[in-house]
């Protein structure tokens, strides 16, 4: 893998809020045009990684270690001017709640134009307007010219999310970060929006980092999944392998807690006992060990990094990764049998 070619290259990233380290060494590599999903529960740090890449951490948050490169260029998070030039141009963001993600007192046209003008200061008003209409057409907003002068409250939830996508692709970024983009939407609208996003990034060759709690969305949309727990990526795996080759007990447990899988197998739901450790007090070794029924003594000493496949696309931080994976395969087979 050549570092220059990567759309996004995160090396050993650490982020702290005040004295508390919330991202504890994360590595993420995304190829151009690749769609990766980051899943995890609230507090796992998945949104913090997203905001960290944008350089938009909430007050008190800072990157303490590691490096981030976007489209082959290392990012200096101290240089606010260069950051502004990078945001919206090389990397862009789509947020969860489409209503609160748009300024309620500025027209839609104004908000799209802002994204264009900032990176193209020499564009004329006419050109910016044409580009805005072009973008709204691309995201499937009907009557785009007429809709420019409307305000966010006059748009439906699905249409607002389309506007946010239009803003995010305005300058053909190398990477688009989508933080729970469809959580606030109905399933039918969610399907429309994800389908749109899929076709757009495909056409424009944009790499996508989809941050979500919904494994179903990841399964349908992404090429690769990264599972986060307590500020670390505990497993990364190709999407087609997650269901019957999960090699980390946490991934396996997450899958077991999905009602759709339980309904299919007519089985009972399983949940993970206990709750994640507070970030102020993460145990040494594997953070999941206290809740893990696979845990052995060495788990509480240090986590293990295991590479599962030859292409290094499947990694898991578990001492017993091979055994867990074997069990996943068996369980997957059972489910298949129950379904048939």
């Amino acid at each position: 893998m050549n570092a220059e070619q990567l759309a996004l290259d995160i090396q050993h990233l650490k982020i702290s809020y005040g004295p508390v380290e919330v991202i504890r060494g994360v590595d993420i590599q995304v190829q151009p045009g690749e769609k990766i999903g980051i899943v995890g529960e609230s507090g796992s740090g998945k949104s913090t990684v997203a905001l960290g890449v944008m350089g938009l951490l909430a007050e008190g948050g800072r990157i303490t270690d590691g490096s981030i490169s976007i489209a082959g260029k290392p990012v200096n998070y101290e240089d606010e001017k260069r950051l502004n030039a990078m945001r919206g141009k090389d990397v862009s963001l789509v947020f969860q709640d489409p209503l609160s993600s748009l300024d309620p007192v500025k027209s839609i046209g104004n908000q799209i134009a802002e994204a264009i003008r900032w990176h193209n200061p020499r564009m004329s008003r006419r050109e910016i307007r044409d580009r805005a209409i072009q973008l709204l057409t691309a995201v499937g907003v009907p009557d785009p010219a007429g809709k420019l002068s409307q305000y966010p409250h006059e748009y439906s939830g699905g249409m607002r999310q389309r506007v946010l996508i239009a803003i995010a692709i305005a300058n053909d970024p190398a990477v688009l970060i989508a933080d729970e983009p469809t959580t606030a939407l109905d399933v039918t609208t969610q399907a429309q929006v994800m389908e749109l996003l899929d076709s757009l990034v495909e056409r424009l060759g944009i790499a996508v980092v989809l941050v979500t709690h919904d494994i179903g969305v990841v399964a349908e949309f992404c090429d690769r999944v990264l599972v986060m727990y307590s500020g670390r990526v505990v497993e990364q795996v190709r999407v087609e392998d997650i269901f019957d080759r999960a090699a980390h007990p946490y991934t396996a447990a997450l899958l077991d807690s999905l009602p759709s899988r339980a309904a299919e197998a007519h089985g009972e739901l399983k949940w993970i006992p206990g709750s994640p450790p507070p970030m102020t007090d993460v145990p040494p070794g594997c953070a999941f060990a206290p809740r893990c029924h696979w845990a052995v003594e060495e788990c509480s000493v240090q986590p293990a990094a295991r590479v599962i496949d030859a292409q290094k696309l499947h990694t898991a931080e578990c001492h017993r990764a091979e055994e867990v994976q074997a069990a996943s395969r068996q369980a997957g087979g059972e489910k298949e049998a129950a379904h048939a």
Binding site: G88, S92, D103
Partner: peptide
């Protein structure tokens, strides 16, 4: 959240503040 979205467009903090927050 829209303030973060505006910043994510690349708009500087001060301009974002004047244009969106104050308004």
């Amino acid at each position: 959240p829209f303030v973060t979205v505006v910043r994510a467009k690349g708009v500087s903090r001060w301009i974002t503040h004047l244009r969106h927050v104050v308004h």
